[in-house]
Write a protein that binds this DNA or RNA. Structure first.
Length: 1047
RNA sequence: GCGCGGGUAGCUUAGUCGGCUGGAGCACCCGGCUGAUAACCGGGAGGUCGCAGGUUCGAGUCCUGCCUCGCGCACCA
């Protein structure tokens, strides 16, 4: 170990870029990992980003929190591997390509060719890979980007297949329908994200329809905004608890317009609450009853023959559903199984026939009705209304305005349409999911209990198939003759089962996999693959094992890396990756997937608005990387607030962090390193010196900070930990320790005091570097290398030693007293440079260790303890509201008044005698606080210490010739030093000095010598009378001075 | 509509078990200090602690309702 090197002014961008090169040539990341191979593994899993979008500041946030924890754990001695990952499949990729090639629909893609299309997708996936790598490297996110897992790799896909087969074997995979927003023009169903792009307000006809009950002469009224779904009606849903009425029409209404109507004597049934709103005729109420009375009643189909009853016993009957409300409509919900999500779920539950009346082009199927067959459904709304009207089945028509989703590409209204889909039966493992979730340590805990728990309690079967092209193909084949289903679990299995002569491609993607025909194990006929790809969330949900190509890859790799210790992503992943990881591990392994999950808040702009491309309020991380540097950016993001709270990203804040934290720290380091280099200080071989109380104090504080930082890291309070470090660096180390130690290092001889200071600074800087290394990996490393000769990232996490809490408290008091002294001077109009003869600390604890510091801070000649309290101050009794409140309750005001009117001296005497009674209550010592306040006329202030004691500071304001001389000397020195600095004179440069004075107090010989020493004046003259050069006035005196470098 | 999380000085925020005059930082003004860096120190100004009730001797803190912002879920039959 040698002496540190002298340093330069801070250039953070240069510093960081320089270190990046050093790290890369040293392969420091690899080293830091390998260094800990003997340690217990800490398992981290990278949530794979998609590289077909540009990385933004929110990615920097997530990566900072990932990196920070991994670096911290590494320093603690854990073995922390970090494999990178890329999410490469899915709709966003396809949409990008579709836009570029103007392929608006599935038929258009197929015409273009799936093979070509997927080639384009494969290319598009990597559009921003370089940008991602650059960002990742520049921000110092340590992660193995050279051997990442990639969801489009054959091996990765094979693991996904394996997982799906596990589910299949457990009976958790099944085929069914899912109602999705579907655009018949493009032949595509849309995810909720895309649907959100296309909401438009529409004003269209809604209808009230009469459903004639079979066993009685009455009709149930139901309401719908989509008349085209009426031919598909197979049921009516009512709320079992909802109150319904049966009414008889007694007279025609006044001013009826539009289609529909009812005849006198006709009977109608609807929710009681909605009667007034819906019914236009004059009616008599016949009876009222709960919805449960209606359940099971059969009614006549509106379009007989449009749907086959098949073996359904519930078709065209009234069904109970507790989600039915009376907020609009009639309190009766028309149910068309294939054209509404609730309708479909209800239909499945009670066994309604699931049969389409509309084809994939959006046209009515043949056999629905002669006037409708083959026509586009949205064009038929009026026809349906007229058909019902002519049969007397229409009660009313009403224009209704609402938001309705439209195709973001073509602008056509989307149809909710039941699509063929494959599902994972998550509902079957709900209890297990909840149990596993309760084992996860969530930060913050309310995301786990609340948002995520809520989601799990309402878990639905997972629709994992997509009618798309670019994705992991669904490995399920169905037999042409016997409908046998087979799920492939590996590439080998596919080869084995392939029909002779059928192509088996090495690339598992479409369209190649579509061409592979399997032989049915049941009947030897051909099996054809289901034409779906999988939800890309399934891909990333498999990451915990597919990254290792489990179970085909390296043996033991997966087992040793599961379950995961730590994952961290934005809160938007709650229903995304956080869920799919758990969903897959639960169904495949019957295990938890991760033990700890940090869910990060959204990132907002400085105004609190969500960052989005369209608003143009995106912050480019490079703006900060290139200005304040990655350290300041990372530190800012960690200290700005709790990680799970939404973060308002304020570019100004980054600048502040840079100026405050990093510039300060750098200058402390520079101060130490420059002197250490000059003196040839070596932390290992140089004498230890003799610690002053100041050294002992800062070392105690250091250990306190170590302890607090560690504790707060453990509790996920990274923001508090880092604010604590920052406070220590800025306030304690720089603004107090270094400020008070400056003169110690000016000593040119190797004094014991200087050595102690240098050892102390060394320890403090090295330890602080280690504490902040996980968050600010650059400057911490620069400092650590300079002082310790090796990288901070190979160092160990600091462990706190026992520390002296008393000295910390004492110093707190000393600093408060120093501030108090300045306040006294301001109040008494006495300038800081004019010394006071004496200062007294009244009734303070023993702090003589710090009298010297205090005297210097206060600029007093001597400090002494004064025990005679009465000399300067009186004791004042204050009530202790906390104890008195408990004792006196509602009588407290009276007691407080008693205190206010009482005389402190006599109250104290009474308490000592044990007989103070106020408003009927015995007052004891515990009920009061005694504070001392200075008597009027003294230059004094009283402060309260942390444990409630009063301490006062009194300054003697008397002037003497000696004091005036000293004060003048300091003023002169200060001016000359400023002039030296303006002239850019080196610190060791000597000067020639002339000083003239008018009306000045006498300058004592000793003070003249002091000026000469302080200013390094080789030749100096002090003259009474008017002079030349710069001048200033102090206390009525005028001073002129000239100086020049002495040669 | 339901759930979760916010709302404290112009801005960013701390505020523990309900208890002394609601603290900091940035910015602003005045003063001081400085061979101390984009520094430091003192003082000033700046507060309806989102609003309204309630509990309590006492509420930023607990309860109820409301307003508002963000996120999520549901609904839009």
């Amino acid at each position: 170990m040698a002496s540190p090197e002298t340093t330069m002014e801070l250039d953070s961008v240069g510093l960081e870029n320089g270190l990046l090169e050093t790290w890369s040539s040293e392969k420091l990341f690899e080293q830091s990992v390998k260094n800990r191979t003997d340690g217990e593994p800490f398992i981290f899993l990278e949530g794979p980003p998609t590289a077909n979008g540009k990385p933004g500041i929110h990615h920097v946030v997530a990566r900072t929190f990932k990196d920070m924890v991994c670096r911290w754990k590494t320093m603690e001695g854990y073995f922390v591997e970090r494999k990178g990952g890329w999410d490469t499949h899915g709709l966003p990729v396809e949409i990008e390509v579709q836009k570029r090639l103007n392929l608006m629909s599935n038929p258009a893609i197929e015409e273009f060719g799936i093979e070509e299309f997927n080639k384009e997708c494969r290319k598009s996936v990597w559009t921003y890979e370089a940008a991602w790598r650059e960002m990742t490297e520049r921000m110092a996110y340590w992660c193995d980007m050279d051997n990442p897992y990639v969801t489009l790799h054959d091996t990765y896909i094979e693991s996904c297949w394996w997982a799906l087969k596990k589910m299949f074997e457990k009976g958790l995979l099944y085929r069914g329908y899912k109602v999705l927003p579907y655009c018949p023009q493009t032949g595509t169903s849309y995810s909720s994200h895309e649907v959100a792009l296309g909401y438009k307000e529409v004003n269209e006809a809604s209808v009230y329809v009469k459903f004639k009950l079979e066993d009685t002469n009455a009709s149930i009224l139901a309401w719908t905004t989509t008349p085209w779904t009426l031919p598909g009606n197979v049921g009516l849903a009512v709320g079992p608890e909802v109150e319904y009425v049966r009414v008889r029409v007694t007279a025609e209404p006044e001013g009826w317009e539009g289609h529909g109507g009812a005849v006198v004597g006709e009977e109608l049934i609807l929710a009681k609450d909605l009667f007034k709103e819906v019914i236009r005729h004059h009616c008599d109420e016949i009876e009222s009853f709960p919805g449960s009375d209606l359940i099971g009643r059969a009614y006549t189909p509106l379009f007989p023959g449009a749907v086959d009853r098949a073996d359904s016993t519930t078709a065209w009957t009234v069904i109970g559903a507790d989600w039915v409300t009376t907020t609009d409509g009639t309190g009766v919900v028309h149910t068309a199984v294939m054209y509404g999500e609730d309708d479909y779920n209800l239909g499945m539950e009670v066994g309604l026939p699931a049969q389409h009346t509309v084809d994939m082009q959006g046209a009515f199927l043949a056999g629905t009705h002669p006037q409708l067959d083959g026509k586009y459904v949205k064009d038929c709304d009026q026809t349906v209304i007229e058909l019902l009207d002519t049969q007397g089945l229409l009660y009313r028509e009403k224009m209704y305005s609402h938001d309705y989703p439209h195709c973001w590409r073509t602008g056509h209204p989307l149809l909710y349409y039941a699509m063929d889909s494959w599902f994972v039966r998550m509902t079957a493992v709900k209890e297990m999911l909840l149990e596993f979730n309760s084992q996860v340590e969530w930060a913050p805990d309310w995301v786990g209990e609340g948002r995520f728990g809520e989601w799990l309690r309402n878990v639905k079967d997972w629709a994992i198939s997509r009618e798309r092209y670019w994705g992991t193909p669904l490995p399920v084949w169905i037999c042409n003759s016997c409908d046998h289903q087979h799920c492939i679990g590996s590439r080998a299995e596919m080869k084995e089962m392939a029909k002779e002569g059928s192509p088996v491609s090495d690339d598992p993607h479409r369209p190649y996999v579509d061409e592979t025909i399997l032989v049915c194990p049941k009947c030897d006929d051909d099996m054809i693959r289901e034409p779906f790809v999988m939800d890309c969330w399934f891909d990333s949900g498999c990451a915990s094992f597919a990254q290792w190509h489990h179970p085909f890859g390296e043996e033991g790799k997966f087992e040793n890396n599961f379950p995961i210790d730590y994952i961290c992503e934005g809160v938007d992943q709650t229903r995304g990756w956080f869920y799919t990881l758990l969903a897959v591990s639960t169904t495949v392994f019957e295990s938890i997937c991760y033990k700890r999950c940090l869910s990060l808040g959204l990132i907002l702009d400085a105004e609190g608005k969500k960052m989005s491309k369209s608003k143009g309020n995106i912050v480019d991380p490079w703006d900060h990387f290139n200005r304040e540097g990655a350290d300041a950016t990372r530190w800012y993001m960690v200290t700005a607030g709790a990680p799970w709270n939404p973060m308002k990203f304020d570019p100004n804040g980054v600048r502040e962090t840079y100026g405050k934290m990093f510039l300060t720290l750098w200058n402390v380091h520079r101060f130490h390193a420059d002197y250490a280099a000059l003196d040839g200080f070596d932390p290992e071989t140089s004498e230890k010196g003799v610690n002053t109380p100041l050294d002992n104090w800062v070392l105690a504080r250091l250990n306190q900070v170590i302890a607090e930082t560690h504790q707060q890291f453990e509790e996920w309070d990274f923001h508090k930990a880092c604010r604590g470090i920052e406070n220590f660096v800025v306030n304690d180390v720089s603004n107090w320790y270094v400020r008070r130690s400056r003169r110690r290092l000016w000593d040119e001889a190797d004094s014991a005091d200087k050595l102690a200071c240098q050892h102390t600074l060394h320890t403090v800087l090295v330890t602080v570097s280690r504490l902040m290394a996980p968050v600010a990996p650059f400057m911490s490393d620069k400092i650590h290398r300079n002082l310790e000769g090796f990288s901070v990232h190979l160092a160990d996490w600091p462990v706190a030693k026992e520390f002296d809490k008393d000295i910390i408290q004492t110093m707190e008091l000393v600093r408060e007293l120093a501030e108090t002294g300045r306040k006294i001077r301001v109040d008494n109009d006495r300038r800081q440079r004019l010394p006071c003869g004496e200062g007294w600390i009244v009734a303070g604890p023993e702090i003589s260790d710090f009298h010297e510091i205090l005297a210097s801070e206060l600029n007093v000649e001597t400090i002494s303890l004064e025990s005679d309290l009465n000399r300067f101050q009186v004791e004042v009794v204050h009530p202790n509201r906390r104890t008195l409140g408990a004792k006196c309750r509602q009588n407290l005001p009276a007691v407080l008044e008693g205190f206010a009117n009482g005389d402190s001296e006599s109250m104290l005497a009474a308490i000592d005698a044990g007989n103070l009674v106020i408003a009927g209550f015995d007052i004891t010592k515990d009920d009061i606080e005694v504070r001392r306040e200075e008597r009027p006329g003294f230059a004094a202030q009283t402060i309260q210490t942390a444990n409630g004691d009063s301490v006062s500071l009194v300054l003697d304001m008397t002037d003497t010739p000696e004091l005036l001389s000293k004060g003048l000397a300091r003023d002169i020195t200060r001016r000359i030093q400023a002039a030296r600095k303006n002239l850019d004179l080196p610190i060791e440069e000597n000067i020639d000095l002339e000083v003239w004075m008018i009306d000045a107090p006498e300058l004592f010989e000793s003070d003249i010598k002091w000026i000469i020493g302080e200013t390094r004046a080789l030749n100096a003259e002090f003259i009474k009378g008017q002079g030349e050069g710069e001048s200033f006035e102090v206390d009525g005196a005028t001073i002129w001075y000239t100086l020049s470098a002495s040669n």
